[in-house]
């Protein structure tokens, strides 16, 4: 039974206690963990070592892709496929291509930001073991939880439980997988 646990879920009194517990757990060497709280807490994700942000680079790539495809589309249409003389202007009238280029850059970045964020977060996720803990729905009301996952190399069911209790957790629950 013990080998099959997803992890241990500790409940704390408030945001400050949760932040402190997350910092202590990180300092103690735990890495595979996650915190759950009803509202965003400043510095919480940074305190657990989530300091690499990969969404910006995805957005940048998408923006460049969008902008170049926007410009490329207009170039192909008005210079190669269907050249038209508009008031004697050159076929490659780049100033009038800029708005579409810009808009497609923005559109692709928005898609990149949303979809990239969802993929990196592993969403959508219809099943998550933490919901097996009866009290957990309070994470969207007044509950502050820290879950240390069994995958963590330092995880040991009794030691980790003792450690979480030493952090003044209100309650520590087993999380069924």
């Amino acid at each position: 039974m013990a080998e099959n646990l997803y992890g241990l879920l500790a409940e704390f009194d408030g945001p400050d206690e949760l932040l402190k517990a997350a910092k202590d757990a990180y300092a103690d060497g735990y890495r595979k963990m996650d915190a759950y709280s009803p509202m965003p807490i400043h510095d919480l994700s940074e305190s657990m070592g989530y300091d690499k942000h990969r969404v910006p680079i995805i957005v940048l790539i998408c923006a460049l892709l969008g902008a170049s495809s926007g410009f490329g589309l207009q170039y192909w249409v008005s210079v190669i496929d269907y050249p038209l003389n508009v008031g004697g202007r050159p076929l490659l009238s780049w100033p009038s291509f800029i708005p579409v280029t810009f808009e497609l850059g923005v559109l692709f970045s928005a898609f990149g930001a949303l979809i990239g964020m969802l993929i990196l977060n592993g969403l959508p996720r219809p099943y998550h073991p933490v919901f097996n803990v009866p009290n957990f729905e309070r994470a969207s009301g007044d509950g502050f939880f820290l879950c240390i996952e069994a995958e963590d190399s330092k995880f040991d069911i009794s030691e980790t439980r003792a450690f979480l209790e030493s952090l003044k957790a209100k309650k520590v629950d087993d999380v069924e997988p």
Binding site: G87, P95, S96, I98
Partner: peptide, 11 residues
């Protein structure tokens, strides 16, 4: 750029 584009298109 808007000012430029409008002037440039109007010609």
């Amino acid at each position: 750029f808007s000012q430029f584009l409008i002037t440039w298109s109007g010609n």
